[in-house]
Design a protein around this nucleic acid. Structure first.
Length: 250
DNA sequence: ATCCTGTAAA
DNA sequence: TTTACGGGAT
C-alpha cells in the first residue's frame, strides 16, 4: 500500500475485519482450538480433517491413541493398510494413510522426526517445504504452521471464501492467496488472533453461513457491514436489488 | 472436472 | 434419500 487512496482502503478493511472478529467472538468465542494437544497430533488432525467432519476425525485420532500409534515413529513404521484401517472413520482412508506416511517421511528426512526442530524453521520457508509433501496443500500447510507451530499465518478455507463472498468483500472466485493477504495485510500479525479468527469463521460457516439456507436472520454479522448490506440482502434473502428503493426487512 | 470415502444430519 | 464435511491430486 503506497498511495493515500489504497491506504484508506486498507484501514477501512482493517476496521471491517476487526468488527467482524468482535461480532463473531461475542457470538461464539472463545473456541480454544486444538487445546492441550501435541503439535504432532494437531498435524495429523489437519491432514485427516480434509473435506471431512471433525467428529469423524476425532474417532480416528482416538483409535490411534488407543493403539499407542500417535507418534512419528509409529506412523512411519506401521503397515500402510493397517494405518488405513485405523483411520477409516475419517474417510478417504487409503489416500489419507498415504498422506500421513508422506508427512512423517518428510518429518524424518528434514527434521529427524522432531516437530520441535521443525518449528524452528522460518514460517514461509517451512510453508514452501510442506507444500512439497504429497497430500499437503495450502490450507493444510497453513493449519500446521498456525495450530501446530504457533506461527502467525492465516488459514483460509471454503467457509472463509463463502462468507466474504456473500458480504461482497471478495469476488466469488478469489484465490487462496488473495484471501490470505486480505487478512494478513489488514490485521496485526498475531498467532492468537489468527487462531481464533479462523475457528470463529468455521463456526459461522457451520452454524449460520451454511452452503444452502443460510440463517441470516440470526447472524451476528447481519448489522456489521453496513455499506454492503444491499448486496447482502439481495443475494441471501432473495430480494431483487434496486437502484433507488431501499430493501425492506420486517 | 473427477475421484477419493465414512458418517451423521437434513 | 440427499447433503455436507475444518481438501488435494490427477
Amino acid at each position: 500500500m503506497c498511495s493515500p487512496a489504497l491506504e484508506a482502503v486498507g484501514s477501512r478493511m482493517e476496521k471491517i475485519l476487526l468488527e467482524i472478529y468482535d461480532s463473531l467472538y461475542k457470538a461464539f468465542g472463545p473456541l480454544h482450538w486444538w487445546p492441550g494437544e501435541t503439535p504432532f497430533e494437531v498435524s495429523i488432525g489437519a491432514i485427516l480433517t480434509q473435506n471431512t467432519a471433525w467428529t469423524n476425525v476425532e474417532k480416528a485420532i482416538n483409535r490411534l491413541k488407543e493403539h499407542n500409534l500417535l507418534s512419528p515413529e509409529c506412523i512411519r513404521d506401521i503397515d500402510i493398510n493397517l494405518l488405513g484401517e485405523m483411520i477409516r472413520s475419517s474417510g478417504y482412508y487409503n489416500q489419507k494413510a498415504k498422506k500421513l506416511k508422506a508427512f512423517v517421511d518428510f518429518l524424518f528426512l528434514q527434521y529427524e522426526g522432531s516437530m520441535e526442530l521443525m518449528k524452528e524453521t522460518e514460517m514461509w520457508t517451512l510453508r514452501h517445504e510442506l507444500l512439497q509433501v504429497n497430500g499437503i496443500g495450502m490450507e493444510t500447510a497453513d493449519s500446521i504452521i498456525l495450530y501446530a507451530c504457533y506461527k502467525p499465518i492465516f488459514v483460509v478455507d471454503a467457509y472463509t471464501r463463502r462468507f466474504l463472498s456473500r458480504h461482497k468483500l471478495i469476488e466469488e472466485d478469489a484465490g487462496y492467496t488473495h484471501i490470505q493477504k486480505l487478512f494478513m495485510n489488514n490485521l496485526p500479525s498475531d498467532v492468537a488472533i489468527y487462531n481464533e479468527y479462523h475457528a470463529l469463521i468455521v463456526q459461522l460457516g457451520k452454524e449460520l453461513c451454511s452452503k444452502t439456507l443460510p440463517r441470516c436472520n440470526i447472524c451476528p454479522l447481519f448489522v456489521v457491514i453496513t455499506p454492503f448490506m444491499g448486496f447482502f440482502l439481495a443475494e441471501t434473502i432473495g430480494v431483487e436489488e434496486t437502484e433507488t428503493e431501499p430493501v425492506e426487512v420486517e
